[in-house]
């Protein structure tokens, strides 16, 4: 099976922050969600994949290209949008269309203008006069309009109302429909993501906490709740993210240890709950 992304031991060290090593794959025709608390390293990961920063260790293949130079030349096959993505101040939508037509081999003018209309972007306004949110939408429209084989999007859902988010989800699912193109997107709106993302890459404090099918992660833990007197030492030892209140306790328990929770209230946590209990640092033990 073709793989759009193949990452092996990718790492980046900054004075105040260390990311990685990261190892994951994204096959053609699927959607991967990149999740984690703020500061976990999601944007840094995407910047590494876009060759905007050089890794300290490891390597990766993107659309089959193994070197930064090769990847840069194959940008026709990549559509990306980060918070730092910009376009020239003085360009209007028409300027963007004219220029992108010359820059990308498979630029789809019709697709672009349809997206501009759908996103409610004023085609006559200069880029610098648009709000940051609208600028992001313009950049997203550009990323989606040149028949790229891989989309890398940093928080594309941020700042969108539920209707717009739903429309974007539809767009992304349509994008992978033929089984050839893939999407990697980071998002805080993890409940939405848990629905339609095939794979999840979960980062906590720069570390790769999990990579695999969404269902695997969701079934990895149980949410255990009970009265204060029911909290055993074994539970405390094996559990994660323990919360105690005057009316009881709750924690995450690996499904493999579920015998320890016999007789207590257990449920499969949704993705938001899972992330809340694993927290910013994903501490294992108290």
């Amino acid at each position: 099976m073709t793989e759009r992304l193949n990452v092996l031991g990718l790492a980046k060290t900054y004075p105040e922050f260390a990311l990685g090593p990261l190892t994951f794959d994204l096959p053609a025709g699927y959607i991967m969600g990149l999740i984690g608390p703020n500061g976990a390293g999601k944007t840094t990961t995407l910047r590494l994949l876009l060759d905007m920063a050089q890794p300290s260790a490891g390597e990766f293949t993107l659309n089959g290209a193994q070197t930064a130079d090769a990847r840069q030349q194959a940008r026709d096959d990549l559509g990306a949008m980060l918070d730092s993505t910009t376009l020239p101040d003085v360009w209007t939508v028409k300027d963007i269309d004219d220029n992108m037509h010359r820059l990308f081999r498979r630029w789809d003018s019709q697709q672009f203008m349809e997206l501009v209309a759908q996103f409610d972007i004023n085609p006559k306004t200069m880029y610098r006069r648009l709000s940051k949110g609208t600028q992001n939408k313009v950049n997203l429209a550009v990323a989606l309009s040149h028949h790229a084989k891989l989309l890398i999007l940093d928080e594309p859902m941020a700042g969108l109302d539920p209707i717009a988010r739903d429309e974007l989800r539809q767009l992304l699912q349509a994008y992978i429909q033929a089984g050839d193109a893939s999407v990697l997107l980071s998002s805080h709106l993890t409940d939405d993501l848990a629905q339609f993302a095939d794979y999840l890459l979960y980062l906590i404090h720069g570390e790769q906490r999990f990579f695999g099918e969404t269902d695997t992660l969701l079934n990895r833990y149980l949410l255990v709740q009970g009265g204060s007197s029911e909290l055993t030492a074994a539970l405390e030892d094996h559990g994660l993210g323990l919360r105690q209140t005057s009316v009881g306790f709750s924690l995450l328990l690996p499904t493999t240890d579920q015998a320890l929770a016999a007789g207590l209230v257990t449920s499969t946590p949704d993705l938001d709950t899972l992330m809340i209990y694993l927290g910013k640092r994903g501490e294992d033990h108290a």
Binding site: Q73, T85, L87, L103
Partner: peptide, 15 residues
């Protein structure tokens, strides 16, 4: 440019 690094944010995404 109005953003950091001028237009490099855009150039990184072009072939």
């Amino acid at each position: 440019g109005s953003q950091q690094h001028g237009l490099e944010g855009m150039l990184a995404l072009l072939p």
